[in-house]
Simulated assay, not measured.
Amino acid sequence: MKNKNSHSRTINDNLERMAKTLYDYWFVQFDFPEENGKPYKSSGGKMIWNEVLKREIPEGWKVTVFNDWIEKTKTGDWGKDKIEGNYTEKVYCIRGADINGLNGKGEVKAPQRYILKNNISKALKPDDFIVEISGGSPTQSTGRIVLLTESTFERFDSNIICSNFCKAISLKENEFSFNFLQEWQRLYDANVFFGYEGKTSGIKNFLFESFMESYFVIKPPKVLVERFYNQIKNIESKKQSNLKQNQKLSSLRDWLLPMLMNGQVKVE
């Protein structure tokens, strides 16, 4: 099972690199396919100097802040560890520690909690994002992110919420999901979020509102974004299928290993 999981992780790493490379080629280098199928910038596509970004961008592209992409945000909850009074709604609570697992870099051990029925509106949906807003370390900034897909929810048997140390994001247009994810991850890998952190009682906090309102990003035309979305959707589907299979194998391991250790079952 270990070799199977390692093989799946390798496949997922390759799928992630494919998505990242395509995003970089289309939306960072600006060599997306133009109307004749040629790479836009390399084949002489018109570029316009943008004073805000201090660089050239393709003609007709916009510069916005991330807030312009967002429809709403949801705060987290923690609830109770068992049914107690009006805390009756079973959920799985995603913490910052679970984000890597949801992204395929480790196991997901989101705790099962019970929240107030009035707070079930905090339940998340496909195409929502979870962003870590508290935590991190001296070498790891806050701001880790995960995109929830329909396949993500198949890995749980009840609603999902995020913890108080995270924030959920819903976009105005779901077709922009993969662009949002890739641009956010690109900035995270470039250590941009270290510049948007404060401290409360020794815990690092991501200055979410400040970043969302002030950091300028390129917003490509929707027609190109839709083409990218359709390309990446297939890659993401394969990745989530592997993660779901890995979770089943891990559950089988956790069930079988204790019985092997105490002699209840034997492998001939």
Rank of each mutant, 00 (worst) to 15 (best):
F66Q: 07
W69Y: 14
W69P: 03
I70L: 03
E71S: 07
K72G: 03
T73R: 09
K74G: 00
T75K: 13
G76I: 01
D77C: 07
W78Y: 12
K80Q: 11
K80G: 00
D81W: 04
K82H: 01
E84N: 06
E84A: 01
E84D: 12
E84Y: 10
Y87F: 13
T88L: 09
E89P: 03
E89Y: 12
E89G: 00
V91H: 09
Y92G: 05
G96E: 00
G96L: 03
G96V: 11
D98W: 03
D98P: 06
I99G: 10
I99D: 07
I99E: 07
N100C: 03
N100D: 15
N100T: 08
N100F: 01
G101I: 10
G104P: 11
K105S: 05
K105C: 04
E107L: 04
E107I: 08
V108T: 08
V108A: 01
K109I: 06
A110E: 02
Y114N: 06
Y114P: 10
I115W: 02
I115V: 08
N118L: 10
N119C: 01
N119V: 01
N119H: 10
N119K: 11
I120R: 07
I120Q: 09
S121V: 14
S121M: 09
A123I: 14
A123Q: 14
K125M: 09
P126E: 11
D127M: 12
V131L: 12
E132S: 14
G136L: 02
G136P: 04
S137L: 00
S137I: 03
S137D: 01
T139K: 13
S141H: 08
T142C: 15
G143E: 03
G143A: 06
R144W: 05
I145K: 14
I145N: 10
L147V: 13
L148E: 03
T149A: 09
S151H: 07
S151C: 00
F153I: 13
F153H: 10
R155Y: 01
D157R: 04
D157S: 10
S158Q: 02
N159G: 08
N159F: 04
I160E: 06
I160W: 04
I161F: 00
C162R: 09
C162Q: 06
F165L: 07
F165V: 04
C166Q: 04
A168W: 02
A168M: 01
I169K: 05
S170K: 12
S170A: 11
S170L: 01
E173I: 06
E173N: 13
N174D: 14
F176M: 12
F176C: 09
F176H: 08
S177M: 04
S177N: 13
N179R: 05
F180H: 05
Q182K: 10
Q182V: 02
Q182L: 07
E183I: 13
E183L: 15
E183D: 15
W184E: 10
Q185R: 15
R186W: 11
L187R: 13
L187W: 01
D189Y: 08
D189G: 06
A190L: 12
F193C: 14
F193I: 11
F194G: 12
